[in-house]
Lab assay of single mutants.
Amino acid sequence: MASQGTKRSYEQMETDGERQNATEIRASVGKMIDGIGRFYIQMCTELKLSDYEGRLIQNSLTIERMVLSAFDERRNKYLEEHPSAGKDPKKTGGPIYKRVDRKWMRELVLYDKEEIRRIWRQANNGDDATAGLTHMMIWHSNLNDTTYQRTRALVRTGMDPRMCSLMQGSTLPRRSGAAGAAVKGVGTMVMELIRMIKRGINDRNFWRGENGRKTRSAYERMCNILKGKFQTAAQRAMMDQVRESRNPGNAEIEDLIFLARSALILRGSVAHKSCLPACVYGPAVASGYDFEKEGYSLVGIDPFKLLQNSQVYSLIRPNENPAHKSQLVWMACNSAAFEDLRVLSFIRGTKVSPRGKLSTRGVQIASNENMDAMESSTLELRSRYWAIRTRSGGNTNQQRASAGQISVQPAFSVQRNLPFDKPTIMAAFTGNTEGRTSDMRAEIIRMMEGAKPEEMSFQGRGVFELSDERAANPIVPSFDMSNEGSYFFGDNAEEYDN
């Protein structure tokens, strides 16, 4: 993207840094990872977990959730003011799984939030270390993106479920800051804005008074975040219109849905970061690795190297396929839920299948599930090659597409044709070009129609051997075009429920 120079890199967003050079960025990201790792080690000690239990991804998720809940100030305040039966607002906890007599047992633990905050700050040299908290939120978000298709949420806001490739980060909490905003897809931002506008339509006082002023500035800020994701002048001009509207209503909703559809071809720039579970960072720190000293990046080879040398386990339900569970977590670790499966298959070195073909449910185990038949197995999170994460949407291309997802959002900077089903997408653009945004709409449609099938995206960008740390010898991959490109292809993934 041309304006790259004016933006802070995501590592800076990730670490609240002012302008830093590459070495400083690597050190501050490393410091953040160190903090998460030290916190995780301490929690495993508190909970008396064995090494194996500490490497269980379900335990990692519970521990991450506990610290996120302990620092969720708004919710904590709300819980104190609106006490609900049987919930102690000062405590947080969740299921911890232990191996007892050759069987997995679930144990519900409860801790004072104050105590968890103390352990977290102690692991982070006394700081609140917001960057580390956001990092864990993005890992949870990436896992949700890989596990669930947001059909219901899309339909509720009037969008087409086939636009799911635009929904990265749709389950990120509001408090995820600049680093969170960077990884949100165009569809996620559109959905947040539509929800806001709908509230304004239904509630006369939404934009009024002292609160209304705050609401208005939040609305304009979200519009600017979305505008910054678009790469064409016409899309940005249309966002200006939406932002400046005196009284946002149905016309703005129409414009936003139009823009979301246009992003299936004229893709937005959305950041991709490899955020790993805390149970990967903990053992690495415990083994003596100093992330701050060595430096770390979320968008280069580092996460690949770390996963190459990590042992992570997962509980497996009786009829689940461990290899499929591994694929789910591998995609989440690489922030690749909406990437082209052919690119992923090449990088991973084994075939990556669409969601609907995987015999696996989510990673988390519900409290009512029976533990008797639970097994555990090693997650295979290694890769054959590594590639640089991208934040450009890439230019655009036609490809055989599917009944489910009709476009992709690249996660890796790797040369390819970008699949999208042009006739299906263009069919949504018939007729409606009147109104105050008509010239911009016409211009956007013209650009979409001009998108050429034979153009290559990320020209000359390749993948790298894991021994090639400096990215000196790019390998331009070859793809098996007979395979499906979309992950949520004609899909039956479970729906995400809060």
Rank of each mutant, 00 (worst) to 15 (best):
S287V: 09
M239D: 06
Y313G: 11
S392A: 14
V463A: 11
R152M: 03
L143F: 08
P283R: 04
P410N: 02
T92K: 05
L133I: 15
G288D: 10
I197T: 15
A337C: 14
E320T: 10
R221N: 11
F488Q: 02
N473E: 00
G132L: 06
E449N: 15
N417S: 09
R243V: 08
S28M: 03
Y281V: 09
L166F: 01
I36C: 05
A442M: 12
Y281M: 07
F304G: 06
K422Y: 09
L306F: 03
C279T: 11
L306T: 14
E294K: 13
T134Q: 02
A70S: 15
K91Q: 01
L110C: 08
M163S: 04
E46N: 10
V242Y: 07
L264R: 00
A411T: 15
N368W: 00
Q149G: 03
S245A: 15
L154V: 14
M136C: 12
L315K: 08
Q231H: 14
L306Q: 15
I425K: 03
S314F: 04
I138W: 07
A493G: 10
E465C: 00
R162K: 12
R348N: 09
G158P: 01
P173I: 02
V270L: 12
D439S: 00
I36G: 05
K98E: 05
C333A: 15
L56I: 14
M32S: 13
R204W: 10
P89D: 02
K77H: 14
D468L: 00
M1H: 13
V363T: 01
G94S: 05
M66I: 10
N76D: 09
W386I: 10
L358T: 13
R391T: 03
E80L: 05
S245H: 01
R213C: 02
R446F: 00
N224A: 10
I425N: 09
L307K: 06
P419G: 06
N125R: 13
N125F: 12
Q241D: 10
S50I: 00
T62N: 15
F420K: 00
L143P: 09
A70M: 02
E107G: 04
F304T: 10
P83W: 02
N76I: 15
P283D: 04
G209H: 10
P248M: 04
L379W: 02
R355V: 10
T188I: 07
I41F: 11
R221F: 08
G187A: 15
I301M: 11
N417L: 15
E220A: 06
S326N: 14
Q4G: 00
D480W: 01
E220Y: 02
S413K: 09
G249W: 11
L379M: 15
L226F: 10
A27M: 13
H324Q: 14
D240Y: 07
R261K: 14
M32K: 08
P95H: 09
C279R: 03
G35F: 09
F479Y: 14
T215F: 01
S413P: 08
E46H: 08
L256R: 04
S245E: 06
I36P: 01
R8E: 00
D72M: 10
V280G: 05
P248G: 03
A234K: 06
K305G: 08
C333W: 06
R175G: 02
V183T: 14
N309P: 01
Q58D: 09
